[in-house]
Design a protein around this nucleic acid. Structure first.
Lengths: 331, 331
DNA sequence: TTGAAAGCGTTACCAC
DNA sequence: GTGGTAACGCTTTCAA
């Protein structure tokens, strides 16, 4: 910038104005500055601008740090839930002129990685469970934060939530009423609030039907080996249906069962949750609850943008997640 | 940071050292600083750090500014070529501890948007054709730049290139030799080098076979209406095959033909280029040339990382794009 | 092992 | 309409 100013024979203030407040500078001066800048290849430093203005012009998205083997993407591993949500975030950022800073997982040093990303942006979106809540709360005191998936109580953390419970209840009722299933295995985790409400929805339907509610068989999405071994434990005595807390786990379950020579849904049904593409193209097609993934990402950006430009709206209510029929339930 | 220093009774230099050079600070001092920082919710400013260190710790990815209607993602619009490449970039950035800054398209003001992104990062990856070459060249004088898809000649711009030509030649030879096609329509653009080499590969195969080479019927990926109307122009006099320069256009072509009551590949064959998922799940399954999309993204990051940490390797040769048989060619 | 202080490249306030 | 210049919050050199 000093070079531009020197070559154009003006002050740095004028260079700055020429770019940021075109009206404040004489037309001819402005053209001179712009031309000079182009001539010497001026690339303004966003760091300096950010420091001076106190605003970065960017939004951050913090995700899980799942490391994948190099190897081309297949439908089974992409796009998953987080990928489609990210797409929504991306599109909405683009529409509003925000740059998007992506971060995830490990960072050397003593600050949690999420703090590192937070320091670079004007507002942060984080998947629930991707970072320690203390860190999220800490960040939320400096910049607006939206958490995806019901999560941290109160404080300054905004949330984009999906009604997981109702969707899972509807799905379970379908299994009870249409298929007459009675022996259920619930496969998944129930630690994060988002997942526990799925389990709750499942439990509610069984309770209403006067059936006992089984404990969840613990499994984690993304840890296929673990899911597989849990499913194997049921090969000798199959339930009527495996109700899984995510599509990823449901697809692994189906694979495991089929590999063991079991017919799905003939001998045992399987259901998922999320509505990822792989489920739609699986055989049998997965019965599931479809999250509005792209819309989740978009609303998160909308909330942040509102907070940042002062036109904040009340946070939207929970988004609806419809139950979607496939063939894996026996339909 | 001043607050942390004050509360901990040390200087700002010590706070800085406590985080960045643990060894230089007495253990007890360091713990004190870290605890104080956590207590008051210290979130370091990346702008300030970037300005002081002259390095941002982030890599930028600049993409096309295609605006999509809100509406949930379907396989037909996601993931496309750019999405999978981006995934590769993301994974590799994650592995190496770089934050990823995403940017695209319009920015108010007088600087091209790509310059804005460039000012925020240590190295930039840009899709060929997504930004004006002058801007790319300008940026490349300040920070390392990798362009995806053969593009800008010489200069400081690095390139990750795919051998588009060979793939298209192989595909065309298949159409000639196995199917005996003689009447070809080439559908697509040939402006960008990347696309023109596809056309060249097509032309080479025809020339070798002693056939005349038709001019391309102009169409752009992403502009479905245009593609559709071009295809409609051939309904009265169908060729043996539509050779399309991208899968996106090929899928639109198939839709258009089928909608007109024409059997594909019975009455006319259609082929694509890229290897996107939608092609694999289309009916008929698309015969195409598969780009190593994820690997393209990964190598771009590798090149940048090498340049940035001084371990620069010579740029890799062109990546191979294999010809992939589907059923849309009549096989 | 720690502190003082000089940058880093902008912006924006205040004069002129 | 334009120029001087004090921030902005951090890193890093040099001294202590």
């Amino acid at each position: 910038m000093y070079d531009v100013a020197a070559r154009a024979g003006v002050s740095t203030a004028t260079v700055s104005f020429a770019f940021s407040q075109p009206g404040r500078v004489k037309q001819s001066t402005r053209e001179l500055v712009l031309a000079t800048a182009a001539a010497i290849g001026y690339v303004p430093s966003a760091s300096a601008r950010g420091l001076a203005k106190g605003t970065a012009g960017a939004i951050g998205l913090y995700s899980f740090d799942y490391q994948l083997d190099p190897g081309e993407a297949d439908l089974r591993h992409f796009p998953l839930y987080v990928d489609v949500v990210q797409r929504g975030v991306q599109l909405e950022c683009r529409r509003r002129g925000y740059a998007l800073m992506l971060g995830a997982g490990h960072k050397d040093g003593d600050l949690p990685a999420v703090i590192d990303i937070a320091g670079r942006v004007d507002g942060l979106i984080a998947f629930a469970g991707s970072a320690p809540s203390e860190a999220i709360i800490q960040v939320s005191k400096r910049i607006p934060v939206v958490e995806l998936g019901s999560g941290i109580a109160g404080d300054d953390v905004h949330t984009v939530a999906v009604d997981n419970r109702t969707g899972m209840t509807e799905l379970t009722e379908h299994l009870l009423q249409v298929h007459g299933f009675r022996r259920f295995v619930y496969l998944g985790q129930s630690r994060l609030p988002e997942f526990s409400s799925r389990y709750d929805g499942f439990a509610a339907a069984l309770t209403t039907a006067g059936l006992p509610v089984p404990e969840p068989a613990h499994s984690q999405p993304g840890e296929d080996a673990g899911t597989e071994s849990v499913v194997r434990g049921y090969l000798d005595e199959l339930p009527d249906v495996f109700v899984c807390s995510t599509d990823q786990e449901a697809l692994v379950a189906i694979d495991t069962l089929v590999a063991a020579g079991i017919d799905v849904p003939g001998q045992v049904a399987v259901t998922g949750f999320d509505g990822i593409l792989a489920g739609q193209f699986a055989t049998p097609r997965l019965t599931t609850v479809r999250q509005p993934m792209e819309e989740i990402g978009r609303s998160a950006v909308r909330i942040l943008a509102g907070l940042l430009d002062g036109t904040a709206q009340p946070d939207p209510a929970q988004l609806h997640a419809p139950f979607v029929l496939g063939t894996s339930c026996g339909c």
